[in-house]
């Protein structure tokens, strides 16, 4: 008998960290030791998380595959399942199946300069890739990270951000749409307003863009204006999903399924697919 593709595996919540306002990061380990050892994934892939009694939701993996034995998910409590997940405590058991989807290109962009543009919790899947790239730092050119949120309390992964900023040949710029008076020393404005502030060799740069659809839309326009080629702009698509395996039908963009053929697409691919981005 073949394996039941929909069966969740049991995972233990080892640690819960308050990541940002309304966002928690869960460190998870598979209960089954074999599963724990063999679990491997690429940055940009996702899994289906089960909170028993509440349901299942697709969540992208935010840890880097370099870290073995555990993985991390950063989750905003916005839907029925994610809200139920936010009520869980360390030691609780949830379900997980995955990894699904294609993941980001990695080997393909080696020796490139890399530009990351992220908004809000959109940094979660990119964090996985950024950390993997930094683990093989000498294989990539300059790494620039532009990150914004609506206001400071919504910025995720502060520890990673300060670490990345200190690594050589890298640049990290932060911005918020609005800041209260107390102590925000950084930029103010949408994340796109950071683009003119960095030096880029556009010919040799691949851009990774993640965030709310409206942000992705405008960043892509900005990048095209700057002269980025369509196939050098990489983004992720979010669609409603039930199965993650190309069966339930929900996540199609044209003939492609976001869960199988995505969630990572180049802008060139998206343009060919037609449906509104």
């Amino acid at each position: 008998m073949t394996e039941n593709i929909y069966a969740p595996h049991l995972v233990t919540i080892e640690k819960i960290r308050n990541e940002a306002e309304g966002v928690k990061t869960f460190t998870l380990t598979f209960k089954d030791p074999v599963e724990r050892e063999s679990f491997n994934y690429r940055p940009g892939q996702f899994g289906e998380v089960t909170v028993f009694g509440a349901g299942e939701a697709p969540i992208s993996i935010t840890s880097s595959p370099v870290n073995k034995g555990y993985f991390e998910l950063s989750v905003a409590g916005v839907g029925k399942v994610t809200q139920a997940l936010h009520l869980k405590r360390e030691g609780d058991i949830i379900g997980f199946r995955g990894p699904y989807g294609n993941g980001f290109p990695f080997d393909e962009v080696k020796s490139n300069d890399i530009l990351f543009v992220a908004g809000g919790i959109g940094l979660a899947p990119l964090r996985s890739l950024i950390n993997q790239m930094f683990s093989e730092r000498n294989k990539f050119g300059k790494i620039s990270i532009l990150y914004g949120a609506r206001y400071p309390a919504l910025l995720c992964f502060r520890d990673d951000i300060s670490r990345w900023a200190e690594l050589k040949n890298s640049e990290v710029l932060l911005t918020v749409d609005t800041a209260p008076d107390n102590g925000w020393q950084n930029n103010i404005g949408v994340v796109g307003s950071l683009l003119p502030k960095i030096n880029m060799n556009i010919e040799n740069t691949t851009a990774f863009v993640c965030g709310p659809p409206i942000m992705i839309h405008f960043i892509i326009l900005d990048l095209l204006k700057l002269g980025f080629k369509k196939d050098r702009i990489i983004t992720t698509m979010e669609r409603r999903m039930e199965c993650g395996l190309g069966k339930c039908g929900h996540c199609n963009i044209g003939e492609k399924y976001v869960c199988l053929d995505g969630p990572v697409f180049s802008y060139q691919q998206l343009e060919e697919l037609g449906e509104n981005i």
Partner: peptide, 20 residues
């Protein structure tokens, strides 16, 4: 062939059924 998946919890939410 499209389907939706729902979890239906019993009254005490200790047991639930996943239905498509």
């Amino acid at each position: 062939y499209c389907f939706n998946i729902e979890d239906i919890a019993d009254e005490h939410e200790q047991n639930s059924t996943r239905v498509r």
